[in-house]
Design a protein around this nucleic acid. Sequence first.
DNA 1: AACCTCCCCAACCGCCCCCAC
DNA 2: TGTGGGGGCGGTTGGGGAGGT
Length: 258
Amino acid sequence: MVRPPCCDKDGVKKGPWTPEEDLVLVSYVQEHGPGNWRAVPTRTGLMRCSKSCRLRWTNYLRPGIKRGNFTDQEEKLIVHLQALLGNRWAAIASYLPERTDNDIKNYWNTHLKRKLQGCGAGAPPRRARRGRRSAPRHPPGYVLTTENISRMLDGWARKKGGGGGRRAAGSGPATPGATESASGSSEASEVSYGGTALSAAAAPASAFEYETKPTVTAAAAADAGDETQLSAIESWLFADADGIESGSLLDAAMDYTF
DNA sequence: AACCTCCCCAACCGCCCCCAC
DNA sequence: TGTGGGGGCGGTTGGGGAGGT
């Protein structure tokens, strides 16, 4: 059976989001919290598909997102987890709470995959690596830091004090090794709105508990046979967080050398 | 300086999963 | 128990920009 599109194709705007649209979406989430995305376009007047709104929020506007270069540790973590979980980016992202699954997926496809493919034959990338863009592609003055969003959302979070998506609500914010996921670190991306940047007072992490990404539990993430893998991953992660490079898992995944 | 190449990443698409009824 | 609908996920695309020629 063919499902209808999530929204009418006619009159639905596509393409890059404008600062104004971002503000509308952030304001809506501030008011109602994330969720009920179907209602977002009609309630906000945004000419966007509900999925587009959700994606924009989860991949870009959500507080606590770290952008920019991946650290070596993050890189290794992604490689390990990809080896164990496959291309289940959402599951992998749950171990990197400051990164979105889209970011991880992009990073894998553009960097890590090539590295891994090349490591055997020592094949270089098609072209020498160029300097990475340090800032998001936005017009100058487009400044909306995650702290800013955090602050904007602070009011809502205080009013609500909880809630969240259907799947996230069940498992709760139990992302392994990353309890302060939404702390709005100083490395937060700079996204700003036309020079009228809101002040960058960091909001307390607790204000955004509702925003925690769904946690990968053994039950949730496991296809057949994943349970033992996942608990092993978790133990490895906890060990790694203490600076201990533990055992078999690491050995298994460390076949990859860059 | 102008043009070309190619890389990055935001966003779209379509399928799948899960919950409510 | 079956069905519909909403949200989530992974694959893919293409616009735009940076570096090379």
